[in-house]
Design a protein around this nucleic acid. Structure first.
Lengths: 226, 226
DNA sequence: AAGTACGAAATCGTATACGAAGCGTAGGAG
DNA sequence: CTCCTACGCTTCGTATACGATTTCGTACTT
């Protein structure tokens, strides 16, 4: 036998704690604003607070949690301003990642992306924001995941993670954007298939995301003044 | 009196440790590959290892140190591949930051940047790579520091920090690039003064950095084949 | 002479313990 | 009735202690 304990997920407890807390944030178990009490989490995991503290520090540096001295950690909420900044940043790094990734995409990748996009299209009737958002992430993942620069890829992942806590929010908030989004996806695929220049692909990918942001902002300000 | 202890630099010891280690890495006291022994640092600071561990975790998440389980932390070196990735990432985020910042730059900022650039020009004779690199950072800081998106700004800072450990290396390695660099700076300033579009400024800023990277790569491969 | 196995030293990983700082509540004074 | 103060509870911050893991040196075997 390899292990005394059947399930030893990761090496160190600090590592496990990191993975667990991050997962819970991304998946929504810990929603924004949720207070992360060290002793509580330590108890849940059956470990002491020390590894938990280290995990929290890492998450803090990644921007997933905020931490105040002598106060504690809370899941980083995303107020509208934060959302704006995060989306803008993501538009830039994801645009770059997609452009760098595009020459490395094979026919199979394009087919897969197109399949996902078709699924999104069928999803438009009896609209399910959560499912739509999941598919949306999958679609874009196919396009940028082959980016050869690991730093940029990491930044893209972090951006998506930050938005993950919002889950579905954007498309729930601006459902009208979903249709346009699907169309833009197809256009983006054609651009990549035609071996368009990196500049063109980057710009298209960036604008695609900016457009979602703009739709959100328009909706938001309309709601304000209503 | 406000404080019992005259000098209480920062709030928590973990914070102090973070600041100190980061400073030592950036300033070069801890050079790449340097092993960061927890007990040693703890002794230096007169604290226990726990706050040190937290500081290291944060630095790890920022990419300034690498950490291996049961082995320890070392200052993240930058091998040529890492350098390439970091510069490419920086070209993208700094380009974006500069473009976003440019509309907010006042005449005073432009004047200051131009002054720094002139200093760089005089620095070309009896070339001092360290000083030149410092001025180079100052020049670019003026241009991107007003970027209203704190996330992007943070990414730019992190990129510069990662490169800081190399200190001077690039321009020492490719001194010929320094002259071009100064000229491109002036061109960039004119572009900003003329209220050029964000696209043009972003592209110029990005290419400016890419060109440095390319010069490095050319030099590097030439050295290999010699 | 080279390779391997054993053991000691160094270092990391985590638990426990205790002190310090915030936060809420209850009680009294104005 | 309201505001201020004092107490106690919760939670964080750090030190210390001990077990676990790796590394390196040395001696022994082939």
């Amino acid at each position: 036998m390899a292990e005394t304990v059947p399930a030893a997920p990761a090496g160190s407890k600090s590592e496990q704690a990191y993975a667990l807390i991050k997962a819970r944030i991304v998946e929504g178990t810990y929603s924004p604003g949720h207070r992360l009490v060290l002793a509580r989490i330590a108890g849940d995991l059956g470990v002491s607070v020390v590894p938990i503290r280290e995990a929290i520090r890492r998450l803090e540096a990644e921007g997933l949690v905020t931490f105040e001295r002598n106060i504690g950690a809370t899941v980083a909420g995303i107020d509208p301003t934060e959302y704006l900044y995060t989306m803008q940043t993501l538009s830039i790094v994801e645009g770059a990642a997609t452009a760098l990734s595009s020459p490395l995409l094979g026919a199979a990748d394009i087919t897969r992306a197109r399949g996902v996009n078709e699924e999104m299209r069928t999803c438009l009737k009896d609209f399910d924001p959560v499912r739509f958002t999941r598919l949306n992430q999958e679609f874009h993942s196919v396009l940028f995941e082959r980016c050869p620069n690991p730093h940029i890829l990491d930044l893209v992942h972090r951006g998506w993670n930050r938005l993950a806590s919002l889950r579905s929010s954007t498309f729930r908030f601006v459902p009208g954007r979903a249709t346009e989004s699907v169309d833009e996806h197809e256009a983006l695929l054609r651009l990549i298939e035609s071996q368009a220049g990196a500049d063109a692909i980057e710009k298209a990918a960036r604008l695609h995301r900016s457009a979602t942001l703009d739709a959100y902002l328009a909706q938001s300000s309309a709601a304000d003044s209503s």
